[in-house]
């Protein structure tokens, strides 16, 4: 709805100011949702809460998609992410019973947290700095089809996917099949293997043998 509305506003020169204002409003709401959600994901200690905050972020992203007139993607974003992926997350959390609170403060390696924060900041700064660089975009006409031409978004997207991007599209199909098979194989319980073996514990935590033994000294 919003999309059609905004599209109509764009077409209508008289409603430019309104359209402008509404676009800003949508952007602001979406941005707020995104940032709140992201902060929630990384800061909340309960995984269930994190998952719910992820939903908020995903919805915010969908809003921004609408604002950028990517109607189809906005729909897909909500259906696939909010509808499937997050549900999957919640399902696993519940299924495994790991909805315990995590002690975020405790950290085995000291420098991990400050360095990680610093790195996030530096990445941000660098990306912003890079975005100031404009000579990478050639400004050449689009190759795979224009965005602003006649027809609605879904039609143009379908056109592109089933013509120019047919091969990658087919490959994603193959990828999905592989993912399905992989999931089945991974979750299949091998016959005779104990549920939680102490041996498996040792193996995974790297305590199977003292690594000092394998030293070669001259």
């Amino acid at each position: 709805m919003l999309a059609t509305l905004s599209a109509a506003m764009l077409a209508d020169t008289s409603g430019q100011a309104l359209a402008h204002a509404s676009a800003w409003a949508v952007f602001a709401v979406g941005a707020a949702m995104i940032l709140t959600g992201a902060a929630g994901v990384i800061l909340l200690r309960n995984p269930v809460h994190s998952a719910l905050m992820l939903v908020v972020t995903l919805f915010g992203v969908a809003l921004e998609f609408i604002d950028e007139s990517a109607d189809f993607l906005a729909a897909v974003q909500i259906i696939v992410y909010a509808g499937a992926v997050v549900i999957l997350f919640l399902f696993v959390i519940m299924f495994l019973g790991v909805d315990r609170k995590e002690a975020i403060a405790a950290e085995p390696t000291k420098l991990q947290k400050p360095l990680a924060a610093l790195m996030g900041l530096v990445v941000l700064v660098e990306i912003l700095a890079l975005s100031r660089v404009d000579h990478w975009a050639s400004g050449a006409p689009a190759q795979s089809g224009v965005l602003n031409g006649p027809g609605d978004n879904v039609q143009k997207l379908g056109q592109a996917v089933y013509t120019g991007y047919l091969l990658p599209f087919e490959m994603t199909a193959a990828l999905l099949v592989i993912a399905v098979v992989a999931t089945v194989v991974l979750s299949k319980r091998s016959a005779g293997s104990p549920e939680r073996s102490s041996q498996g514990d040792a193996e995974l935590s790297g305590r199977a043998g003292d690594p000092e033994d394998s030293e070669v000294s001259l």
């Binding site: 992201a38 994190s50 972020t57 947290k113 990680a116 941000l124």
Partner: peptide, 17 residues
């Protein structure tokens, strides 16, 4: 958003998060 995601990845220990 990307920066927050990256930071979170490095900070959190819960695999799901």
């Amino acid at each position: 958003l990307f920066g927050m995601g990256a930071t979170g990845l490095l900070i959190r220990r819960n695999v799901l998060i």
